[in-house]
Nucleic acid binder design. Structure first.
Lengths: 195, 195
DNA sequence: GTTTTATCTGAACATATGTTCAGATAGCAT
DNA sequence: ATGCTATCTGAACATATGTTCAGATAAAAC
């Protein structure tokens, strides 16, 4: 039965996810034990199994949640008319969304190999769906002559790799604001696909 | 004493490195046991310790070797005169070098967090040295007006992220040759830094 | 106040881990 | 042939792992 009133346990689930995401990002899935997660949450290892059937499901749930958040946030935006504005919107969205979720991005990127075959397939489908949004933008722009790229599929992957690369160096509180980073990357993206 | 003649043990060292690199790339450092490595090499776990003092040194040796190979291969090229040719040379070199070393690139990128603090610092220094080569090219090009980027440091990291991203999708035997991939990326790089 | 229910503890289980080391093995020089 | 040396085996050690579960705890429902 679902809890209807506030109690300390109502926050244990989210807390486990937060702690696990941070630890997985920091040390990697295989290097983090259930006891470490439990210890950081402030609980014994056995208690974790009230919230996840096993360690693998914990990782999968984190990655699936992240990808669904990404797709939902993307879908919530209304798309501009012309291709150029669409690409700018995608660029700024991608950077802003990923910058404030460094841990989730890192985990979703690095721990694909730690997923079971079935879970991997599920995550890959979600990732593909996101990539397709960018490729659609590029394809349409190429059609109308606004963009020119040698290969839309490769350009898609190249741009996403470049944009996600922000996470390797950006640290909150650095010399650049999110908007400044967005603008810097948009400048390069715009030119990279220019005719 | 160093071996002077051929014997089966002369190839055990390299074999361990090959196997370890492949397994680390496939499953991650923490997820691979010394017994798995030994088993793939065709030897008992204890025998590995004739070639490495411990697991951490094995990983570090692989990463250090890769970074030194990279810097050596880079240094062996003679640099063209003008900035544009230098950037093209760097782009093609980076792609070609990284494409034929997928496992080493993957490990050197993903397992930084598995290194001890001291080993991490060493690898980071080597990586920085490589990045600086690209940044020098960009800086000089910006000076002479051949390139225009918002920030040479960020542009460096953005381009390297984009180029290294090739490894996430390229598979030998695919529809594109190395030269074709080089050209596709060079087209985007050239435009991304164009004035 | 009593029952019910969700949650947590603490110990246990079977297995896996990195590493060590005495002794076996086999190629080398003499 | 004999001694030497590098290498490998196989067992052992101490510890860590994911997971389970009977029983404690405490809040909610009646």
């Amino acid at each position: 039965m679902a809890r209807t009133t506030g109690s300390h346990s109502d926050i244990t689930g989210p807390r486990i996810r937060d702690v696990a995401m941070r630890l997985f990002a920091q040390h990697g899935y295989a290097a983090v034990s259930m006891r470490q997660i439990a210890s950081d949450v402030g609980v014994q290892a056995g208690a974790l199994y009230n919230y996840t059937p096993d360690k693998q499901s914990l990782l999968f749930g984190l990655m699936q949640g992240h990808m669904e958040d990404l797709l939902a946030a993307r879908a919530a935006r209304d798309v501009p008319e012309d291709s150029l504005a669409q690409l700018e919107d995608f660029t700024r969205f991608h950077i802003a969304f990923h910058m404030e979720r460094a841990d989730a991005v890192f985990v979703s990127y690095m721990e694909l190999r730690s997923l079971s075959d079935e879970n991997f397939a599920t995550i890959e489908t979600l990732r593909r769906r996101y990539e397709d949004e960018l490729e659609q933008i590029l394809r349409q722009g190429v059609c109308t002559g606004v963009f020119s790229v040698p290969d839309t599929k490769i350009a898609t992957l190249a741009l996403i790799a470049m944009l996600t690369g922000v996470n390797t160096w950006y640290r909150t509180g650095g010399r650049l604001s999110v908007e400044e980073v967005e603008t810097i990357y948009w400048d390069m993206v715009r030119k990279a696909v220019a005719p």
